[in-house]
Structure formats: C-alpha cells, structure tokens
Design a protein around this nucleic acid. Structure first.
Lengths: 222, 222
DNA sequence: CATACATTCCAACGAATGCTGGAATCATGG
DNA sequence: CCATGATTCCAGCATTCGTTGGAATGTATG
C-alpha cells in the first residue's frame, strides 16, 4: 500500500483485487452473492462455512470493492458492487477453464458426459420465449428464484422435480437453467427429464450471466 | 486440489488463477510479458527483482496457465499463454480502478492532470493512419519496439525524445503510445511535445491492448 | 571435452493468511 | 429498558507465501 511511485501502487491494487478471489471459499461466496442480494445467514447456510469465517471472507471482498453491504433490520445484506465484477468472474473462469489441465478433465468427465446436446444460447431462448413454444424451468432453490429470475420461468427446485413432474407439459421442450456454467442443477434436471421422455435442454450459463447481459429479469415480491 | 465434489474443485481452480495475480511483482511481470516475448534476464532488468525471485514468480504464472515458456539458445523466453489472459488483466484493471478509492486518487492526481485532452481511440487512429495525416510515435525502449509495434510507428524512446525532436515533422499531429493505460511514457511524451509547440495526443491504452484487439502489428527483424 | 552463462531447484527464514472459539456491537421486539 | 438474535471484532493456532543465498541443471561456445 505504501509506495513512492504510482506505477507500483497500481500493481499493488491489482493484487488486492486478485487476492480477494484467491480463495475457493470466497469464490463460492461471491458466486452466491452474484445471484442476488443475500444475508450472511443465508450465505452461511448455502456455503456450509461457520458464521465467523464467512463474515471474515465477506469483509475481505468488501474491502476489495467487489461486494457492498447494507443493513436491513437485523440482517446485513451483501450484493455485487457493480456489473464489472461479473465480467471479472467470467474472465477468470474463461482462463481457468482453458489453462489448467485438471479443470479440463473435471469439466469433461463430469459435465459433458451428461449432456451431449449443445446448450441453448441467450438469443435462442429469447426467441423461443417470444414464440411461447417452450417451458422455461428454473431449478434453483425457491429463495434464489425469489431474489431474481428470468421472466416466464417456473420454479421447481431440483430436489422437488421428481414428484412435481406433472406441472410440466410433456409436449413442449423444457429449457432448464440454474446458477451458471458450473452449476450441476441444470444438468441433473435435464438428465431427470430426459429419463421421463421429455425433450429437455439446458441454458448456456445461468441466471447471473443473464442478468449481467442486461436481459430482462423478474423478482418475486418480498 | 483434492475435493470430492466437482463444484468445490472448480472454485479451487478459480482461486489458483486469481492467486497467480495476487502479488504486485507478478502483475508487473505479466504486464511486461504481455508486451512481447521476454527472457528472464530482460524481465529481471526491467522489474528490478533478483533472478531467483523472478524465476519463482514466473514458475507460478506458468503453473496457473497464464504464461508459457520456450527455450531459445541459453535463454528461456516467456510469453502470454493466450489472448484471454489480456482480457483477464483488463477486467482486473477495470475493477481495481473503480472500486478502490485509493487508486482513484492516484489516477486522478498523477495522470489526468497531465492530459486534459481525450485520448485517441483505436478506430480513430486506424482512420488517421489510413489517411496518412498523422505521425505515430512509439516511446517505449528500443527492445520493446523490436518485439512488436503498431505498423507505421516511429520509435523514439522517451529519454531520447528531447534531442531527437528534429525527426518529427512539426506540422503534423503526433499520437504517442506506450505500454498501456498506466504507462507514464506516453503522458510524458505528450507533455514534452506540447511544450515545444507540437499538436500531440496520446493513444488510449497501449500496444498490448492493440495487439489483444487483433489489430495489425509489425516486428523488427531479430 | 571443458568452460561460461542463463535458469531452475532446494532449504530456510520471517511475514501474511485461513480457521476457530469467545467476547463485543448493534438493531429490533417485548 | 432489557432481552434476543445477527453480525462483527479479537486473540491464537497451524499453514502457506515471499524472499534470499547457494547448489544444480542444461545449453552454447571455445
């Protein structure tokens, strides 16, 4: 932080931002926060971290300017500071995907094997929603759906999908989405639906990316 | 590195990439490497690090998949692994610029005060080069110019500029560029030239960004 | 084959980071 | 005003990171 010449100071600020993302738990937290405003309590439940630990990490993300916090009653709600943070996350993801052999293997073996069809692009989804010939399925937990979702989507959390299949018309294509390219929910949902004879596909990326692309969104009333 | 569920593993790989950028010295090194292929020796000279230390940092960048190395004689040359790494650097820079108050002050006081005119965009430069009504000036050191530069540019390193002013026609606009938005060279050059009565402006960004945008480049013969 | 040189590997120290448990702070509801 | 619940602050521990100096590797040159 203390440097005479400004060039060095700039590099140090670079490092501060990168450092904030240099921990798997913080990445998980910021990905959760990217899906909508969340309280510490929720984040703790979703991530499995201890309260103290999660709070520490959130402070760090806040100091780096990646998230901002506001008080609502006895809860403190965190949200992404600006849209550019989502761009940053996607840039990191793209580099991580390409460069590291290990991650390639993970993605290959775990994801691609489950979905041989190409994912649906944003443009394609927008067109098919306009024509009304498709059922859009949001398989995230109800609370995430409430925080924000794609207009027209029906929400059936993944664990409830098997017993609520009746709610989905069997004669229309189902497009499932969840949190992002690494979220397993949409893959699982597609696998489940296909086993029942549905024509199911998954959306490329997920809700945070849809939001970042400035596509229209909807939210349930609080 | 060892995690049963793939989601956690993905977050850990995120962290590996971010961790590689989480140190000011590594950021400096990768910015230097982004300007063209460089040997360890050059990087040591330009950064002021010890040989051992620079080597360690370069190994780390290499493990994260941000740079690649190849052997050329008794030198090992490092270069950016893929173009997406430049995008990543720019994404980090954008977030760092915005979020951190400290860096804002630095940028404000050190840079903006020196150049009241808007910088020249890539498109504007391309158009003016096509019409031939402008002198393009590369103020980086000769070795960086040799590693790669914008076609049509003349190279006068900043420290030689005062005594080589005669090489620049006084009746044409001069557009100066160097390494990127934080490189002071172009700002200094514009200040020098204006003091001598030139119509001088600076290019937005610098050579690495020009290269990343897939604009045409030229290199001196080795 | 031997030498010179560039780079990497190895060992070791101090500093910083991540995690945990307990105490303190702060806003709401009775 | 007190009690409650949510969040943050604080102290201590094990682990990791950054730096340095010296040794080892590997490649070109005589």
């Amino acid at each position: 932080m203390s440097s005479a010449n400004p060039k060095r100071a700039v590099f140090e600020q670079f490092a501060v931002v990168a450092q904030a993302l240099a921990n798997a738990h913080r990445v998980e937290l910021i990905e959760l926060v990217a899906q909508g405003e969340r309280s510490v309590e929720e984040l703790v439940r979703l991530s499995g971290l201890t309260v103290t630990n999660a709070s520490q990490h959130l402070q760090q993300l806040r100091r780096a300017g990646l998230v901002v916090a506001r008080r609502a009653g006895k809860h403190v709600l965190y949200r992404i500071a600006e849209r550019d943070v989502v761009d940053l996350l996607m840039a990191v993801r793209r580099t991580a995907e390409r460069g590291v052999a290990e991650i390639d293997k993970i993605v290959q073996s775990y994801f691609h094997a489950r979905d041989s069809l190409e994912p649906v692009s944003h443009d394609e989804l927008a067109a098919r929603l306009r024509d009304g010939v498709v059922t859009l399925l949001d398989v995230r937990p109800g609370e995430e759906f409430a925080a924000g979702h794609i207009p027209g989507a029906v929400n059936i959390p993944l664990d409830e999908l098997p017993r609520r299949l009746g709610e989905l018309p069997a004669d229309r294509t189902v497009i499932a989405y969840c949190r992002g390219p690494y979220c397993v929910f949409a893959f699982e949902a597609v696998a489940t639906l296909r086993a029942r004879g549905y024509d199911a596909r998954r959306l490329a990326d997920g809700y945070p990316q849809w939001w970042a692309a400035r596509r229209p969104v909807a939210a349930a009333v609080a």
